[in-house]
Design a protein around this nucleic acid. Structure first.
Lengths: 220, 220
DNA sequence: TATAATTAGTGACTAGGGGTCATTAAAGAG
DNA sequence: CTCTTTAATGACCCCTAGTCACTAATTATA
């Protein structure tokens, strides 16, 4: 009997439709201004129905963020495959991150917005999926660093996971400063956001280069 | 006639008292959970009075953040004075930042929380003061980089302001990943937050070292 | 000192949004 | 055709940010 299966599909379809509508609303009005009523209207559903599919507003928001993370992860996977040398993989990931920011600024804003909230709060619903996705992304980065260490294009005295996590933090920091202060920086110092990303790449390139100065200790 | 002056002092005093009360409430309950009613109660005032001193909840929150920024700035100033060589000044600033995080986690959380919101929104009230303070902090960092370039302890082919801004972003990124994901990282990868800060310092040290490999282009 | 004017403070009230639930409509089973 | 199950609804509740007509206190004036 295929009825339950069809129902399941329809339910999933509706869920997707709601996320689509929510995306439009949240992205255009901003998460703070957008109301569940707005989303319901955009989805041509009643407000109560939204709560049949999502635990609450945050859960719905996290569903959107999960989409962003999936796109990002896909970009990272592609970046890793695009080159051979580990250091280039790392660089490609970095570029992919900044490309993502250029191409999907709304997702980036959303992600930054929720990056700053306590993650562990409630690991039910989409929160746990986001955590899992984040773990995958970290793993992809760590593998890239690892491969660089193995092929000698990244200095051997760093720990791949630590480095990947740190790089992840660093990139996010740059992305964030550009997203939130980019305008101000431009006005105040006449510096283009692009300059900051280039500065970033330059610094990281140096930092990971195996031909650098004898590290003052290295990462453990 | 000293009456207006005394009134001004009393007003300022009350303002400080309100911020004190708000700090307690916001820090203990979290910004999202804390209500203006809670703050009013803690300050032993009516809710309406809060709005005589602060434009709205966010403004009050920004007043708290401004305090945090002032502490941070003071720490940076001290750090810069604590050593001679520019590269050491930069490192000292970095350490000061992480010390600040250890000693004032509540301020850090508050600052991260508002770091992610659009800064330019409304430059009235405390928002503009926060912007100004941020500018000062950036300037302090830029001076440290500059002095390092001048005394040769930092490679000469970087732009001080760009580098300072980038470093600022990087540090914040690390701080943020530790603040929001520290627990998870520890569970998941068995990595101590402290390790990430050390990895960070190691990377930056390398990146700024003048004896590094011929940069692949440098920062412009 | 009595009175007017100014300033500080109040708390009931409004507006609006998140989330719920008794009820209705639709679909499938027997 | 009737009964059961599932999907959807929207009126409703509750909470909180923010307001404002009013009261109290302080200072200036007569």
């Amino acid at each position: 009997m295929g009825i339950p299966e069809r129902r399941e599909r329809e339910k999933e379809r509706r869920r997707v439709d709601i996320i689509d509508a929510a995306e439009k609303v949240f992205f255009s009005k901003g998460i703070g201004q957008a109301t569940m009523h707005d989303v319901a209207e955009a989805a041509e559903l009643s407000k109560g129905t939204l709560y049949l599919y999502f635990k609450n507003k945050e859960d719905l928001y996290l569903a959107i963020i999960l989409r962003g993370m999936a796109i990002l992860q896909a970009g990272f996977e592609a970046a890793v495959k695009s080159t051979e040398k580990g250091i280039d993989k790392v660089a490609a990931i970095g570029r992919a991150y900044f490309d993502f920011c250029d191409n999907h600024p709304d997702y980036v804003n959303a992600m930054l917005h929720y990056e700053s909230r306590d993650a562990a709060a409630d690991p039910s619903g989409y929160a746990s999926e986001c955590n899992a996705q984040g773990k995958d992304i970290t793993a992809t980065c760590a593998r890239a660093v690892q491969s660089g260490i193995e092929d000698g294009s990244i200095r051997g005295d760093v720990d791949p996971v630590r480095t990947a996590l740190t790089l992840w933090g660093l990139s996010t920091g740059v992305v964030q400063i550009i997203a939130t202060k980019g305008e101000m920086i431009k006005e105040l110092h006449g510096i283009d956001p692009q300059d900051l990303t280039e500065t970033f790449f330059d610094l990281i390139n140096r930092a990971l280069n195996p031909d650098g100065p004898a590290g003052r200790g290295g990462t453990r």
